[in-house]
Write a protein that binds this DNA or RNA. Structure first.
Length: 246
DNA sequence: GCGACAG
DNA sequence: ATCTTGTCGC
């Protein structure tokens, strides 16, 4: 099993990480609408953890945007690069995600992240961070409202309400299934909010969460199980070798 | 000061 | 994120 390490210069403290966000957020591009839903490719990325074994597994799954069929997929396993701190999620997820993206055999198209983009304490969440580092269009689709507030959208799929920080719209609470809890969409990089919402609806013909994140979630969990099994197997193998020879 | 807080 | 069985409903 090949493992990816923490990148050189990766922040070691929360202070350093916040400084990186403050420096990079100026590179977010907000004046592009982005590719139209249903055209080209859309790539879901997700990460799973085993904190006991200090393992992280990431997956990137490329879908044909028109058919939602899987075009390509890749995984990467490594060590945990940062503790989970609200507002600093990107530092925990990005090294493994980038390694998985680097292993894809084709261009990813639009990235769909689990989490937020501009809707963030320093306006630089995971989706924006990954977008800036890769240069790719990126959107954030989160399952929880984080620190933001919203009024419940109408019950029909497609209905939405502004996601608010203070009184600013930083994203949208979007109903992707009739009568089901909304998801929370925000702009990452090189995509407009309207288009991010349109992409999310195009990716949710059947389930609350986008097909991209469902596929990536399943794949990174599988990769983590296999990595954990491999680690456990290695330990067992070593133990066996060390058995007394009396 | 205390609690909340994407994954 | 992760720990976890059954259960209500389409």
């Amino acid at each position: 099993m090949t493992t990816v390490g923490v990148p050189a210069g990766w922040p070691a403290t929360e202070e350093e990480a916040r400084a990186v966000q403050d420096e990079l957020r100026g590179r977010v591009v907000l004046d592009e609408r982005g590719p139209e839903p249903g055209t080209g490719r859309v790539t879901g990325v997700d990460v799973a953890y085993d904190d006991q074994l200090d393992l992280v597994a990431a997956a990137a799954v490329v879908l044909d945007a028109a058919t939602l069929e899987v075009v390509a997929e890749a995984t990467a396993v490594g060590r945990v690069s940062f503790a989970y701190v609200p507002g600093l999620l990107a530092f925990r997820e990005i090294p493994a995600v980038r390694a998985a993206l680097d292993r894809l055999p084709c261009p990813p198209g639009v990235l769909v992240c689990d989490g937020y983009g501009l809707a963030h304490p320093r306006c630089f969440g995971l989706a924006s961070h990954l977008g800036v580092l890769t240069g790719l269009p990126a959107v954030g689709v989160a399952k929880n409202p984080f620190t933001f507030s919203y009024d419940d959208p109408e019950p029909a799929r497609g209905a939405w309400a502004p996601l608010l920080a203070r009184d600013e719209e930083v994203g949208r609470a979007l109903r992707t299934r009739d009568g089901v809890k909304p998801v929370f969409v925000s702009v990452g990089h090189r995509v407009s909010l309207d288009n991010a919402v349109a992409h999310t609806l195009a990716l949710t013909p059947r389930y609350r969460l986008p097909e991209t994140t469902r596929r990536a979630d399943a794949l990174c969990r599988r990769a983590l199980r296999e990595a954990a099994r491999s680690v456990a197997g290695g330990v067992q193998e070593a133990t066996t070798r060390q058995a007394p020879t009396s």
